[in-house]
Design a protein around this nucleic acid. Structure first.
Lengths: 226, 226
DNA sequence: CAGCAAAACTAACAGCAGTTAGTTAATGCC
DNA sequence: GGCATTAACTAACTGCTGTTAGTTTTGCTG
């Protein structure tokens, strides 16, 4: 009975989209927030369940383990980033601008600051859970970015050795802003993740990129590059 | 018997410096490395004891709890930073250069990269354990740095609103380098914490500071500022 | 409305966490 | 060398963790 199998599967999918996936999403939301704040080991499944409003074993109706839940959180959170990078990789080198990725990532992280903190937790603990995911994208991205900068038609005011450090620095400026925001708010009283702060930071990063990638010696002849 | 009390205390101190403090230091070393890599919750006292080569309960002869051990690690690790900041606060404003703190911190973190990762773990989880320590130094440092930059005799090519973001960015460039180094090594195969990499990064940061704090429009008249 | 799967629940378990009590070995001083 | 104190050890406990088994409720479909 091959047909009944097929329809059964179809039915399951339909139903899941009704209620099952709804709570699965709620679980992912809660888990994302908790993992982002307390890290993997610091987050308990009881906390996740409590945040969702269900009992702990019910989580296992949607995810087969804590590890699988964490992976799902990471997968869902990083999907927009992956798509952005894929798009970038497919694009013609001529169409790429210095800040196309930069601003794209700023947008993504602005909408979901927890992602930034998740990634930071990962890289801090050695990124062993990112192996299959981020590592596969980050490494080529990093290398191609370096190539791109080095082989840029416009002369870059940095040596080839410095380019990886420059990319690393830019990465930290961007992602660090989001990871530090809650701490900054508690310390300084100002919420950097509010609309105003985000706009300020976006403009700041844009200006930073401009200033770091344009040789100051060439500034007199062409002031408005981008 | 007040005298005997005094001599008894003195004796204890002398003895502690013989052997007790030796293993206490070994415990701190092992704990620092483990906390830096796995965070507070991800580190078990059994792991610490095993790394030292003793049984778990023996740790309690030197530290009264896991929390106390962690605080001691943080305290010892941040002492050089605190001393640097104190010195900076006492110095006459005229003697301060843009990069005096920057290079000092680079030196400290170069010798003990784990400190950087410890601090990152803290700020990621909200920095609740830093309350009494770092927060008391960081906040004034941050504010005075901002004031210093804004009121600089040399015109700064950033608006007053952008200055906190600039300081934050610099902070992340410096500390992020050390937290990312192990991950970078695993990904790219190159050890940034080796002598060569450190020298490169130090020079890079120095150049970055120069480039970010000097108005490019003024560059023609004075090229070798520092 | 009957039936059925999905998803909630309760009860419970094995393992490991931090920690304590009580004991033995090591260490430095008179 | 005897003695006091520190610091190692073994044994054990409580509480919490992720996880499983078995049961009841929910929500959709024919």
């Amino acid at each position: 009975m091959p047909m009944s199998t097929l329809t059964a599967e179809a039915e399951i999918e339909v139903r899941r989209s009704r209620k099952g996936e709804q709570t699965a999403d709620r679980i992912l939301d809660a888990a994302e927030a908790l993992f982002a704040e307390h890290g993997y080991e610091g987050t308990t499944l009881r906390d996740v369940a409590a945040a969702v409003g269900i009992r702990t074993p019910s989580l296992y109706n949607h995810f087969e383990s804590k590890d699988a839940l964490y992976s799902a959180v990471l997968e869902r959170g990083l999907r927009p980033v992956r798509e952005l990078l894929d798009e970038f990789a497919k694009s013609r080198p001529d169409d790429r601008t210095d800040s196309s990725i930069v601003e794209g990532i700023m947008d993504i992280l602005s909408q979901r600051p927890d992602i930034a903190r998740l990634v930071q937790h990962e890289t801090l603990t050695g990124g062993r859970r990112l192996t299959g995911m981020l590592r596969a994208w980050i490494q080529p991205l990093f290398e191609s970015s370096a190539d791109m900068v080095v082989n840029s038609p416009v002369p870059i005011p940095w040596t080839a050795e410095q380019v990886p450090l420059l990319i690393l620095a830019l990465y930290h400026v961007i992602i660090g802003f989001f990871t530090m925001a809650p701490f900054y708010k508690e310390m300084m009283g100002e919420d950097l993740l509010a609309e105003e702060g985000l706009a300020l930071q976006t403009a700041f990063v844009r200006e930073l990129v401009d200033r770091l990638f344009v040789d100051p010696k060439l500034l007199s002849e062409d002031s408005g590059t981008r």
